[in-house]
Amino acid sequence: MSTATEAGPAIRTPRPLPGAWRLGLLRGALEIRGFFRQREQAVFTFAFPVVLLVLFASIFGDDVKDGGITASQLYVPAMIAAGIMSTSFQSLGVSIAIERDHKQLRRLRGTPMPPSAYFLGKVWLVLVNAVLETAVLLAVGTVFYDVDLPAGPEKWFTFGWIFVLGLTSCTLLGIAISSVPKSAQSASSVVTLPFRVLQFISGVYIVITSLSDWMLSVAALFPLKWMVQGLRGVFLPESAVVLEPSGGWESGLVALVLGAWCVGGLVLCLLTFRWKSRDDG
């Protein structure tokens, strides 16, 4: 809009900036384009859990576990849960630490863009990647290994809320842990190590009944174990509940723990997130 006066030409009134949601969507589109332009990173992100599923399903696919299920059916929910954590916790923990060390966060903080738009952009990136990776895992499992999909709307509803709560909690934890690495060079090691350990003690690679009690106790403190357990309840028949140390799927407890981590992860983000590296003060 412009206004004219007798003393001079029209004066332009600056347009208001788009809202945080609009900027977050635009930022998300930028993040997604940037991610897929790095072809090696994109291929590794999507291929790694698929390759593991193919390996485990090919090696143990004909083995029938207690409860009358094949190893192939057992590994699909485990790989989906690991894929959710990989695209959120691991990806954000490393990428944000690198952006901070390269001064990108400091420059963004100096622009008129609301801080919430930056985080919304990361959320869009994580959501798109997690959905695509889950779809690929389901396609590979059903086409090549005859994995049965959840039967009925109730199972799919359970799958939906586990996916949302698990992705939310791991995204917040990824943002929080990004402040731990001191440099871009150490980011991958600092973030990847706890993720790999959690995969081994949370029932992703090793059947939960083969793990010792102390490992299960440690794993129960983090979201991955509960995502894997909840998704087993979605993909496995009721006869497979004998595989659970507790004797049940514990859907209510899964929701409670994942919800608590969503709240706890948000608190950790608010307390620990930094726009500048430690060397910048």
Rank of each mutant, 00 (worst) to 15 (best):
A7M: 13
I11K: 15
L17E: 14
G19R: 12
W21M: 15
G24F: 00
A29D: 14
R33C: 11
G34E: 04
F35M: 05
F35C: 07
F36I: 08
R37W: 14
Q41D: 13
A42R: 03
V43L: 11
T45R: 08
T45K: 11
A47Y: 03
A47H: 03
V50D: 02
L55Q: 01
A57W: 04
I59F: 09
D63Y: 12
D63C: 14
K65G: 15
D66W: 14
G68C: 08
I69F: 00
A78F: 01
M79T: 06
G83K: 01
G83A: 12
F89Q: 05
F89E: 04
L92W: 06
G93W: 03
I98H: 10
I98Q: 12
E99V: 09
R100I: 03
H102E: 14
R106N: 13
R109C: 11
T111C: 10
T111H: 05
P112T: 03
M113G: 06
M113H: 07
P114G: 05
P115G: 06
A117L: 10
A117V: 10
Y118T: 08
Y118I: 12
W124H: 09
L125F: 11
L125Y: 05
L127Y: 10
V128I: 09
A130D: 00
V131K: 05
V131C: 11
L138Y: 03
A139N: 07
F144V: 05
Y145M: 02
Y145R: 05
D148Y: 03
D148Q: 11
L149K: 06
G152C: 03
G152V: 02
E154G: 13
K155H: 10
K155L: 12
W156F: 08
V164H: 02
L165R: 01
G166P: 07
L167F: 01
C170Q: 14
T171F: 06
S178N: 00
S179A: 04
V180D: 00
P181G: 05
A187I: 00
A187P: 00
S188R: 12
S189D: 00
T192G: 09
F195R: 00
R196Q: 12
V197A: 08
I206N: 03
I208S: 09
S210V: 13
S210W: 14
S217N: 10
A219C: 02
L221P: 01
P223V: 02
P223G: 03
K225A: 15
K225D: 13
W226V: 01
M227L: 05
G230S: 07
L231A: 01
R232W: 07
R232L: 08
G233Q: 02
P237R: 07
G248Y: 04
S251R: 15
A255H: 04
A255C: 04
A255I: 10
L256D: 05
L256N: 03
V257E: 04
A260D: 07
A260C: 07
L266P: 00
L270K: 13
T272R: 13
F273C: 04
S277E: 10
R278D: 08
D279N: 12
D280R: 14
